[in-house]
């Protein structure tokens, strides 16, 4: 190890001048402090905008959001216009999106996590789902317009809108259901197999119940996305002034975001429409707030049980 001795240079020359280091130190620390506050400010920027946005919506809807507004049908006259049709339309939409995405989403997730062999085909479906999640919602609208409205001949009906919206939010349900299924510990499955249960019995009686909270959370998030989504429905074709209340899956319909859209763009013609739009936004945000709170409660309640 003689060469190691040679490695150590005998020179005592010093490069770091402590006085210089000290002099620069206070500036560096000050800069760090300033930047700390700038970053905090930047973080708060988004929240400030959020507060302004909410304030605007609430301020604009005061005096407009009341029982009449919630129970009246649409009207060109701002004083008599209400959103009962849009509320019922939104409920109808959920009646389709809920069951369809639940069956498709959970089924796909079970297939991917429990049955499919991890290989090319598995990663193909997985990649496909990831890619679908990134497709702009308006492209789903065109798919719905071409397939459901035109080819299947559903027209601009609840079923066409509902199926389109289901495909749009499907990736959300699949991914969250997959995560939930994956987090079910292996020993629970083994316990079930150990008693002679079959694979499907194990999935049905052990895996799915344990994964339920995660699946539900994903479902709620998917539904709240569907409730707020506008673009695909614009493409499918929702009439601006639809007075009759839909009564079946094949009726045309309108939903809360569509009503916001039409009132917003028409607010240049009739000033009061901006207030109607704001009041509808408040209703929509309240619904979303409640749904998300439920999702958070479910998630927190069932988190980390194992």
């Amino acid at each position: 190890m003689k060469d190691m001795n040679m490695d150590i240079a005998p020179e005592k020359k010093s490069y770091i001048d402590l006085n210089v280091v000290q002099k620069k130190m206070s500036a560096r620390i000050l800069l760090n402090k300033i930047v700390n506050y700038l970053f905090l400010l930047s973080t708060l920027f988004g929240l400030i905008v959020l507060v302004i946005l909410l304030y605007r919506v609430v301020a604009d809807s005061i005096g407009w959001l009341n029982i009449d507004f919630l129970t009246n049908k649409l009207s060109t006259s701002p004083d008599r216009a209400g959103i009962v049709g849009a509320i019922i339309g939104t409920v109808w939409l959920m009646i389709i999106v809920g069951p369809v995405t639940m069956v498709l989403g959970i089924g796909t997730a079970i297939y991917l996590e429990e049955y499919a062999k991890k290989g090319r085909f598995h990663s193909f479906i997985q990649t496909n789902i990831t890619n679908l999640a990134g497709v702009p919602s308006i492209v789903f609208g065109l798919l719905g317009l071409t397939i459901f409205v035109r080819v299947f001949g559903f027209g601009s009906s609840i079923i066409a809108g509902g199926l389109t919206m289901s495909l749009l939010v499907l990736p959300i349900v699949v991914v969250s259901a997959q995560e939930a299924i994956r987090s079910v510990p292996q020993f629970l499955r083994e316990a079930s197999y150990g008693m002679g249960a079959t694979k499907w019995q194990t999935i049905k009686n052990v895996v799915l119940p344990s994964a339920l909270p995660g699946v539900l959370t994903g479902m709620i998030l998917a539904l709240s996305r569907a409730i707020g989504e506008t673009a695909p429905l614009v493409v499918i074709g929702i009439p601006a002034l639809l007075i009759p209340i839909p009564g079946s899956l094949f009726d045309s319909f309108t939903v809360l975001p569509m009503q916001i859209y039409y009132w917003t763009i028409d607010s240049v013609l009739v000033d009061e429409y901006a207030h109607l739009a704001a009041a509808t936004i408040l209703v929509l945000l309240t619904v979303l707030f409640v749904m998300n709170s439920v999702a958070i409660i479910i998630r927190n309640k069932f988190q980390k049980r194992y």
Partner: peptide, 22 residues
């Protein structure tokens, strides 16, 4: 980070330190 920017000096420091660490 302690304020030495000169490429030549940095090179010398790097060599000296790497030698020092064998």
């Amino acid at each position: 980070i302690h304020g030495i920017r000169d490429k030549k000096i940095l090179k010398e420091i790097v060599e000296k330190s790497l030698r020092g660490a064998a």
